[in-house]
Design a protein around this nucleic acid. Structure first.
Lengths: 348, 348
DNA sequence: TTCTGGTGTGAAAGCGTTTTCTGAAAAAAC
DNA sequence: GTTTTTTCAGAAAACGCTTTCACACCAGAA
């Protein structure tokens, strides 16, 4: 039983016939230590030898055995990625760009899924560490901060979309407050004065920051935010439907809604559709994230764009730098307003 | 420079202070060979010794070092997953369920992205093999078949959404033909007689099968398929917009459209919106895949649901069985019609 | 009793690297 | 020209595990 698969694996491996450091040592007529040294640039090597080795490496198409490397050197050439949830459009988009950046770095990525759950996240992170990943990129997520801090001091690690006290330079953060402010400001600019807000998960830092931006924008326009204008959602489409229904049945009067993410905006829009309320003619909607789909909703959704490509690239660059021992410093990223057709004008 | 990160890694590793097979050998008062044997069940071991070892393993919370294991045994405890494209909602949904299935198996997953490109796919697959993954799950993708066949004979491998000649038992396939047929049939059932089709990438097997189903359903209803009714898209939203515009400007008359995936359906729907053509009052749309978003479009999209959960679970179960040396046999999966609100009735 | 044939076990040889440790040769200092 | 450093390179010891080999033990057969 077990032996069968063992056998099979052995077979393909022997077919592949890996070339080892021994082979290139022989061909370059040096010792394996020397080969290792030129490979890793870990000590001075005479120019003649170095060239001989490099020639052999190229000629034999040598690829180091990562297991041996891992065993001997404690280096796995692997970057662990902990994502908040695979199949969340936003995180996947970031993931995509991260993977992109890693692909030619010699490292490979191993992905673990936190499933939106602290316990799962912690366990996933643990399994990443057991695999002896050389570094970790944490995308979103809700691990206990204390655990992360402990780790961050001990191994290369970068955080995406999250603020960790004392490790700001490792955090690739979006200025969510300003994002919320800008979204609300856009509504204000178009003449709206009564603006509802569908908030994200109430404990989620991003949700809090966006709401804060919303309230400040309102105040700066001399409008006192009303508690009844904001209703909490779960960042999902169906919670958007519910939220909008709640707003409507409570008899709130408002001409525009700022949804804390696009998915909830979709849901809100559907709730409006059900009641034959037109968008943007009767009520305007603005979302947040600019998911790929948002350009194709009816009507196309005005929203705040997360620079997923920049986020992904920055995260990769940072972890790679960390791995090389270079210092890193990240700067906060900003969100762009994407004006489409879901926000109407109000003239007094 | 380099030494810094090395140092850091060493540090955390020494803090963690791994317990090795030596430690449990000592505690159980047996040789390491015996420990290895009970761990892998690779040879008969006396009952007393076995128990002692198991006790020690539990007490010391022993976790094998995968690098050592990989080096010595040629087994990496890693499953490679090659996905056609990360951040494609359908494949991500499958991926999600695959990951789910792997999470408690002791294996971990390493994900590579084919980027919709044969060369990329091949290279990604290669890098998976270099990592000595124990098995591979290929989700969709467009690698050369020959290469895959060669590999499939040599190592555990399962294919999702793809038919490989001679390895049908390793293919987790959806009956796309029937899916296309059912979608068209639904339109027919609702009285539509003039039905256009927005096809996927013309060379893609799924696209071909769905179109074939469409044509057969038409013929079975005594309607001769018109070449002008089908226009090719790229499986993307914007290609859906284009396709619908082409249909419209060519002056085709049709009361319904079958789009080969939901994304193109979204695009088609937007094109209609632009021309003030109502859905489903003027024209009906049916999609394919049932992406998470489709329940929240305006109007909610009638579509064919891919059983991503079943697909994912089946794939995982299959690869795990293969790895254990058990025989596997997969059965073709079917797609379900999800009736929502984008298809209207026509009464004669 | 002696021989044969399992069983269960430990010693030891790898697996492919990195990294001391050592020594020789070359360069610098006297 | 000798002594003292510095450079460079090879031998060999890890790294933690699997697996072969050899051997001791004990049953059953002769």
């Amino acid at each position: 039983m077990k032996t069968l698969s063992q056998y099979t694996i052995k077979r393909i491996m022997s077919e592949t016939k890996r070339v080892t450091i021994q082979d290139i040592a022989k061909r370059a007529d040096v010792s394996i230590s020397t080969v290792s040294r030129v490979l890793n640039n870990s000590a001075a090597v005479g120019e003649a030898h170095r060239q001989a080795v490099e020639e052999a490496v190229a000629a034999l198409d040598y690829r180091p055995n990562i297991f041996a490397k891992g065993l001997a050197g404690g280096v796995s050439m692997t970057i662990g990625i902990l994502t908040q949830n695979i199949s969340s459009p936003l995180y996947d988009a970031i993931l995509y760009h991260v993977l992109q950046g890693i692909r030619d770095s010699g490292y490979s990525a191993i992905i673990a899924d936190g499933q939106w759950h602290p316990d799962e996240s912690r366990q996933s992170l643990q399994s990443l560490l057991e695999r002896q990943v050389d570094g970790v990129i944490i995308i979103g997520g809700n691990n206990e901060e204390a655990h992360l801090i402990e780790l961050a001091g001990a191994m290369p690690m970068v955080f995406v979309g999250r603020h960790i006290e004392g490790y700001e330079h490792l955090c690739i953060c979006i200025d969510e407050y300003t994002g919320g402010y800008m979204a609300t400001q856009h509504l204000l600019d178009r003449g709206h004065r009564q603006i509802a807000h569908i908030m994200g998960i109430a404990t989620h830092p991003d949700a809090i920051a966006r709401r804060h931006g919303y309230e400040c924008a309102l105040r700066d326009a001399s409008i006192e935010p009303q508690a009844a204008w904001v209703v909490e959602g779960q960042f999902t489409q169906s919670s958007g439907v519910l939220a909008m229904e709640m707003l409507l049945t409570q008899g709130q009067t408002f001409s525009a809604v700022f949804a804390a993410n696009d998915q909830m905006a979709y849901g809100a829009r559907l709730a409006l559709f059900r009641r034959h309320i037109r968008v943007p003619d009767d009520i305007s909607i603005i979302g947040y994230d600019d998911q790929p789909h948002s350009g194709f909703t009816i009507p196309p959704l005005t929203t705040m764009r997360q620079p997923t490509d920049v986020i992904g690239r920055t995260a990769t660059a940072a972890i790679l730098d960390l791995l090389k021992g270079n210092p890193v410093a990240t700067k906060p990223l900003t969100v762009d307003l994407i004006v489409r057709e879901s926000v109407g004008r109000i003239y007094r």
